[in-house]
Design a binder for these strands. Structure first.
Length: 588
RNA sequence: GCACUUGUAGCUCAAUUGGAUAGAGCACCUGACUACGGAUCAGGAGGUUAGGGGUUCGACUCCCUUCAAGUGCACCA
């Protein structure tokens, strides 16, 4: 729609002798209740025209109608200038822009972006919160790629620390040599089981100590299990072979389990970082910061940064004993990532409880003048809540990722069979379909919500398959495919109709917006924009489908036109859903 | 206590970033032709945008304030 903007700029210049920036032209979609497709808000120009908004709008409208052959007519309602573009223009858009394979395929912009997401701990299986993280990270990666970026999907695995030692210790004490092979338990679940066992035993010990007169705090520190876990961590850091071997073995089980979960979820990574490799990094940056005067040292030897001028606090960046804290590591890891890829942007998909941490981290890297510091972004998302409140692993109220996905497939199977839609499907195709639909419902449910908002999930009330849902959109796609195959559809960009019905025009207008939607979704890192767009598209298509007969169109030319329009819709629906990491079936 | 985030129909979410009469889905009610797939479509009902003040042609959106919820404020990660 740039040609409208350019012409509007020209209109203001010509009529009122004023230069306005093209960004100042507020183009918007014309609301349904009015005539036209494009609307210009003319209030801002009244100060140049020194006339009322209606008259200003009329003058600009008149100018545009004379200036642009594409403009068929215009009308003015209050200060709103509604422009009708000729059907010829929209039809031409369908054939020359939307139908070709190049549609919505951004030119590479020469920029690199890293998206770090998932970043699990290796002491327990993934839960619903991780699912949101993974889906967001993957989808944002797809969107950025579609917007022209070269994307590196990174996973920073938290594979060391006291929590890992807890699982290891409990396994040593209670495991009796249990392995995934011996018990048939998925590796991450097996390790998670011992993490829970540790916690139980630890709590028992705390109670025992309290019975002997110790305070809660004392008991927590003195319980034998926590001491043993801490000793184990020290041994790990010292490179003790027995501990390292156990650590490797148990992490191996977890990785096998994660691989399965990731596969089900349909996400993947280009690069893995392991905290066991990176946890000592960052100390050289401390020296650098001290030299540059960004950091300062306290008498006890600890190193800090003073961010009070930025409205934040003083923040510790190195302990008095010279060891790293979380911040130290993250500075080092940021540097490592940059050295590896020299990316222009670096996105961290991490929950909003770490907002403050990333605010500080990015500020520090900026103050140090680090390359790439401008491109840092924390994609902060809200927690997933259950009706009972927050998920708590110790209280057993977590929704397990594997269980959840299995349930979604089961529900998809139930619904599909109840409708009797898979008679004649091969068994393998059925399974594939249940997976596609179940995951489609789940992914869409989680992605349609603005990332930064917290999300309510009720496990008892199964995710809907009707209305504003993934399956609704998948269904629309399958339905289009069904019509196309009945008609033996072939791509043909030479069919000419001259006039559009209302729904047909609405549909094309919507289709032309797809590239812009991708760009805004990329700029805002928001899959929700794509999700809501694709839904709108599916809805308008269904309206079209009901109002207009395709196979029984009035004549052959019209039939072919509607087939092309249907094919274009199916393509955009499919591409849009793929940006969310959702597959669309040919039949369902 | 301080900081950040959120608050929109009974429920779950939108609102083109300051624009028109705040829109969808679920649930509820009514309807859809021996027609291309009824996981669909058309219609009804449902709102003091948490409350109050301000900024201006115009506010769900920006500012102030009160209230409610969440998160963070470790020499943990």
């Amino acid at each position: 729609m740039n040609f409208i903007i350019d012409a509007a700029v020209k209109a203001v210049k010509h009529l009122y002798q004023t230069d306005v920036a093209s960004a100042a032209i507020g183009l918007q979609e014309t609301r349904k209740e009015f005539e036209g497709q494009i609307t210009i808000v003319t209030f801002p120009f009244t100060k140049f025209s020194r006339k009322g908004p209606e008259q200003t709008a009329n003058e600009i409208g008149e100018f545009l109608k004379n200036e642009l052959t594409e403009v068929a007519d215009f009308n003015v309602v209050k200060g709103f200038l509604n422009i009708s573009i000729k059907d010829e223009y929209w039809i031409n858009q369908l054939y020359t822009q939307i139908l070709p394979d190049s549609f919505a395929l951004a030119q590479p912009n020469g920029k690199k972006v890293m998206v770090e997401y998932s970043s699990p701990n290796t002491n327990k299986p993934l839960h619903l919160g991780h699912v949101r993280n993974n889906l967001l990270g993957y989808s944002v990666s797809q969107i950025l790629e579609a917007a022209g970026y070269e994307v590196i999907k990174a996973n920073l695995v938290n594979d060391r620390g006291i929590h890992i030692c807890k699982s290891m210790l409990a396994w040593q004490k209670f495991g009796n040599g249990e392995t995934p092979a011996s018990s048939g338990l998925k590796g991450d679940h097996l390790v998670g089981k011992y993490y829970v066992l540790f916690d139980k035993a630890y709590k028992t010990q705390i109670e025992e100590l309290k019975a002997t007169g110790q305070t809660e705090d004392e008991a927590k520190k003195n319980a034998p299990f926590i001491k043993e876990a801490q000793q184990m961590l020290q041994k790990w850091e010292a490179g003790d072979t027995e501990v390292i071997d156990l650590w490797k073995t148990m992490n191996g089980w977890v990785y096998a389990g994660f691989a399965e979960t990731y596969k089900q979820m349909g996400v993947n990574f280009d690069k893995y970082y392991y905290e066991s490799d990176t946890y000592l990094l960052g100390k050289d940056i401390i020296d650098e910061g001290l030299q540059k005067g960004v950091f300062f040292k306290k008498p006890d030897g600890s190193v800090w940064i003073d961010l009070t001028a930025d409205g934040l606090d003083e923040k510790l960046v190195l302990r008095s004993d010279g060891t790293s804290v979380y911040m130290t590591q993250d500075m080092g890891t940021a540097q490592l990532k940059y050295n590896d890829y020299h990316m222009d942007k670096s996105i961290y998909v991490v929950g909003n409880e770490q907002d403050y941490h990333f605010k500080v981290l990015f500020l520090i890297l900026n103050k140090l003048g680090k390359a790439g510091a401008d491109g840092l972004f924390h994609l902060s998302y809200g927690m997933v809540d259950l009706p009972s409140g927050k998920m708590k692993s110790r209280e057993g109220t977590v929704v397990d990722a594997d269980d959840l996905m299995a349930e979604m497939e089961a529900t998809a199977k139930e619904q599909t069979e109840a409708m009797g839609k898979v008679d004649g499907f091969a068994e393998a195709d059925k399974l594939q379909l249940y997976h596609t639909i179940g995951m489609g419902a789940l992914k869409y449910f989680l992605l349609k919500v603005d990332p930064k908002k917290r999300l309510l999930f009720d496990p008892n009330e199964s995710v809907d398959f009707q209305g504003h849902t993934g399956p609704f959109i998948q269904y629309t796609h399958a339905r289009i495919k069904s019509v196309l195959s009945r008609a033996d559809y072939q791509l043909d960009t030479n069919i000419v109709v001259t006039e559009l019905a209302g729904v047909e025009r609405d549909l094309i207008v919507l289709l032309t917006q797809f590239p812009d939607i991708i760009q805004s979704a990329a700029n805002e890192y928001s899959p929700a924009l794509i999700a809501n767009y694709v839904y709108e598209l599916a809805k308008v298509y269904n309206k079209f489908y009901h109002e207009k007969s395709i196979l029984q169109a009035e004549d052959e030319v019209l039939k072919q036109f509607r087939l092309q329009l249907s094919a274009a819709s199916a393509k955009v629906i499919s591409k849009g859903m793929n940006l969310l990491g959702i597959d669309v079936p040919e039949r369902m």
